[in-house]
Structures are given as structure tokens and as C-alpha cells.
């Protein structure tokens, strides 16, 4: 079988703030179709990793390759071309509070300087993306009129409206209640399956990763269903980030069997939820 093309690669990447490394000599490779669940406590470097992948932060050392292209020497303008193929949901949603929901979701299409779609197409795609997250009726509202969960869903619509190859979700369920969190993760699973997007999700909740590793969206039945283990979900791997480096890399079963005390401590309260506590 032909090797899937590389989408995102970090080579010994170090990012520091005031001398303290937030990412410490980090290396990994994500290939097309992969799903990566980055678990980590607050301050472990999850958001820094996401922002470095997007070129919003420059590494002090090491190289970041996006779609196989070294980005070390790219200017901010050159980065715009790379970012057009990336979708991102920020921790706080990152919606522009002075724009309507329609304008927010249409923003990446409107600002495509190279290949801007027609106004009719922009409207259609915006509506379609909002209907995907079941918020088709909110076009004229502004972000402050929506709940936290709805804003996060609008953020997902904005991330997927350009049909990105790689979508990055930075703590999509942070600060949300369990029911809303489920809705958000289910939407991420749906987006991943419908558009076959390479997905990286940073979260502090093991439940989010567990869901994405074990459930998938069935396009025919339009339902979230358990993954057929025989078919495999080898593309979904977990990373546990601790102080800017990986404390764990592996599959869900490897994660649940790990003896690393930090990772186990991190997992304990979450495993209890699923009745898997020893």
C-alpha cells in the first residue's frame, strides 16, 4: 500500500517564552487521514503546539513541515497560502464579535485573495457549513447572542468551510457542560468522517479522545456509531503532553495499559467515568 502523504511534521521543535521551553525538542509526523488526540494538563504546551503548527508562533529551534514543505523561511504573507489548507478551532472559539455569524463563517472564503469564490458560492457554502453544525438559523445573529457551545459550533463551521486538509481543534470542549461537550466532539467526529479530514485535537478530557477513537459517523445512517475494530482505527493515536514533551505516544489500549505514573494519574479520574478503574 502506498504510503500516505505527510501532512504535518515537527523536527526537534523547541518554542520558549522568556527562556522557559513550552515545547521541548518535540518531533512527530502526522500523515493524511490520521487522527491525533493530544492530552495534557493546562500549561503542558497543547495550545503552543497548535499555534506553532499554524505558524502563529515561530520555533526557536527545529523545523515545522506542513504538507512536506519546510516553513522555517516563510514570511507571514507566504504563510497565508499554507493556512488556507488548514482549519482551526481556537480554545475560545476566536469568533469576531463585531461580525455576524454569517460573516464570521464566510470570513476565510471572503479573504481568499488567490481564489475567492463568487458571492453566491460563499453564501451557499457558509449556509451549508452552518447547517452541518445545526445552526443554519443563526446567520444574522452576532456571537454574543449565542451560548458558549453554539459559539464553539460556529467555530467548527468556520474551520471546515474551506474544506481543509488538516483541522486543528484547540480544547474544543473546555468550559462546556458534558452534554454540550458530547455534541461538539460528535460534530468533530462527523466532520472528520464526512470530509475525510486529518484531525488533531488538543484536550484535557480523556473522554473526548476516547469518543474520537471509538466512534465514527455513518454517512448512510447519519448516526454516530462505534468503530468497527476489525476495520481498525489505526490512524487514531494518543499523545500525552507534559511540560512541552511527550510523556506518552501510542494507541488507546497502550495508553490504558501504560505504567507511567504521570500518565496514569492523568488518566485515573477519566477512566473512572468509563468504569475501567482498576
Amino acid at each position: 500500500m502506498a504510503e500516505r502523504r505527510p501532512i504535518l511534521e515537527f523536527e526537534n521543535v523547541t518554542v520558549s517564552f522568556a527562556g522557559a521551553p513550552a515545547l521541548d525538542n518535540l518531533s512527530f509526523l502526522v500523515r493524511e487521514g490520521d487522527s491525533r488526540i493530544i492530552l495534557g494538563a493546562a500549561g503542558s504546551g497543547k495550545s503552543v503546539l497548535m499555534k506553532t503548527a499554524l505558524g502563529l508562533l515561530k520555533p526557536d529551534r527545529g523545523r515545522v513541515k506542513v504538507f512536506g514543505e519546510d516553513t522555517s523561511h516563510l514570511s507571514e504573507t507566504q504563510w497565508f497560502a499554507v493556512r488556507r489548507k488548514l482549519g482551526v478551532l481556537f480554545q475560545e472559539g476566536g469568533l469576531f464579535d463585531s461580525l455576524t455569524i454569517e460573516e464570521n463563517v464566510a470570513y476565510p472564503l471572503e479573504n481568499n485573495r488567490v481564489n475567492r469564490p463568487s458571492s453566491e458560492e460563499i453564501f451557499e457554502r457558509t449556509k451549508e457549513a452552518l447547517e452541518f453544525v445545526e445552526l443554519g438559523e443563526t446567520l444574522d445573529k452576532v456571537p454574543s447572542e449565542l451560548s458558549g457551545g453554539m459559539r464553539r459550533r460556529v467555530g467548527i463551521a468556520r474551520a471546515m468551510v474551506t474544506n481543509p486538509t488538516l483541522t486543528l481543534y484547540d480544547s474544543p470542549t473546555a468550559g462546556l457542560d458534558p452534554i454540550t461537550s458530547y455534541t461538539i466532539v460528535a460534530l468533530i467526529a462527523k466532520e472528520r468522517c464526512v470530509h475525510n479530514t486529518t484531525t488533531m485535537i488538543a484536550t484535557h478530557r480523556y473522554q473526548d479522545g476516547h469518543f474520537l477513537a471509538n466512534y465514527t459517523y455513518n454517512d448512510k445512517t447519519h448516526r454516530i456509531e462505534p468503530v468497527n475494530r476489525d476495520g481498525g482505527d489505526a490512524g487514531t493515536r494518543f499523545w500525552v503532553l507534559r511540560s512541552g514533551h511527550f510523556a506518552f505516544e501510542g494507541t488507546q489500549s497502550e495508553l490504558e495499559e501504560t505504567r507511567d505514573p504521570y500518565v496514569r494519574n492523568f488518566m485515573k479520574p477519566r477512566m473512572k467515568t468509563y468504569g475501567k478503574q482498576e
Binding site: 499554524l54 493556512r83 488556507r84 482551526v88 476566536g94
Partner: peptide, 17 residues
């Protein structure tokens, strides 16, 4: 406010300087 709510980062990520 835009900075702390990540709107500036979002702007850059969505192709606007």
C-alpha cells in the same frame, strides 16, 4: 480584547494581516 479572546490569532490563521 481581540488579543485575549484569540481573535487576532484567528485573523492571522484565516489569512488576514
Amino acid at each position: 480584547s481581540m488579543r485575549v479572546t484569540e481573535q487576532i490569532d484567528a485573523m492571522r490563521a484565516l489569512g488576514t494581516d
